[in-house]
Design a protein around this nucleic acid. Sequence first.
DNA 1: AAGATTAATATGTAGATACATAATAAAGTC
DNA 2: GACTTTATTATGTATCTACATATTAATCTT
Lengths: 233, 233
Amino acid sequence: MNEQTRLSWTDVRDEIRARILSRAYAPGDKLPRDEDIAQELGCARSTVHRAMQDLSQIGLVERKRKGGTHVRADPVTRATFDIPITRREVEQRGSIYSCQLISRTVEQTPLPIMARFGITHPAEMLRVKALHLADNRPYIFEDRWIDVGSMPEILDVDFSLESANEWLVHNKPYSRLDVRFSAMNAEGESARYLDTPTGSALFVIERTTWIGAEPITTVQAVAAPGYQLVAQN
Amino acid sequence: MNEQTRLSWTDVRDEIRARILSRAYAPGDKLPRDEDIAQELGCARSTVHRAMQDLSQIGLVERKRKGGTHVRADPVTRATFDIPITRREVEQRGSIYSCQLISRTVEQTPLPIMARFGITHPAEMLRVKALHLADNRPYIFEDRWIDVGSMPEILDVDFSLESANEWLVHNKPYSRLDVRFSAMNAEGESARYLDTPTGSALFVIERTTWIGAEPITTVQAVAAPGYQLVAQN
DNA sequence: AAGATTAATATGTAGATACATAATAAAGTC
DNA sequence: GACTTTATTATGTATCTACATATTAATCTT
């Protein structure tokens, strides 16, 4: 192992991060100029700059032109979650995936759905309810609304072959995304399809996508009891 | 607005992203070499490289030396969540923050807590239960374990002045973090302190931190009914 | 002194060059 | 043909240069 190699920007990032963590640079402190850090560590300014960009994205420091770099005063815990296609999620747990189409209707969007999309006038949308299973046990129940105006093809898709989840991911990209997590008590459909007593606490993922300002789809995915979402890193 | 300016790496990133979204580059496809893209767009390879690094971090593409760049075949929804100090979270909602210390004991870690930390032998840790309030209404109930071995100072801190949450964030950094979300039914303490009927569905945030391999703290934060976590972006 | 103008400064960016590294393909060996 | 060795190639990285841009500090006006 040759220690005498040059510093990469990730090395610099880790060094600065270590200093922040050890309070060598405390919250609120102003860091030296990129150039001075570069000189101290024996690398180029661009290397320090790249490191700082990363630290800034992570949320550890804040940078301002001329103002310099500061350690964020009130650190936030920033966690990243990957929400894969349900099929993949199930398969990665080593289970066998299957999916049941429950219903498929064309309905006028009610107010709560309009609110999710941020639209002011109701629209005719395709509503698809489906149950994802892992090893034939209920895993996630999803209630989805799909805008048909922008993709009439959707009406011809056979969701018993490919779930709406998958079809959309593979065929319809989005440019804007809203994700939110919450908890709700099992009741009615969710209890019935997830095969759990009314009142069980269920984890809910709500996802809405647009292309530009145009609605694509919104889903409420309710997971069976015991579901846990773990952050990356 | 001068259109004749040079392309920045964010421009390139957005252009490539747009192509992926529009299926010009479809999932699984191999993208042209950085250099070819650079030539096509009229910029330097380093600019394309920087753009690609970002797309790779976002999870849209995968890169391999010599292998080239591919659009991720099974796109994941990647969402980033900021979990601020509870005080800040409450204040940003425009509410008045307060905090009640419920209990403070030194206990031997039970198995589930050892599992969270990944330690094999029990340790004496400080256990602090507290209730965060927004406008004097229960907001989050937290049950926290703090390793005293690595920070004996903690025993002298008056948690009625500053919550353990805040003290740790300001005084004890971490190098490794585990965050997970789930749902649970209110029962016993959580129901009592959050002033909600037994059985209500509650959103749970579990956070564990280490410095290197050394445990720092683990918290189970249970939010009052209606709590919702919204992704950044 | 208040306001407007100008200079100074730290970060942001693009580009060129040179080399490092990993993965693949091609060529050579037995 | 199976294995090893050797090119080839696309991304990864560092550095230098030159300039852009935002913001603060200094200076000049009235």
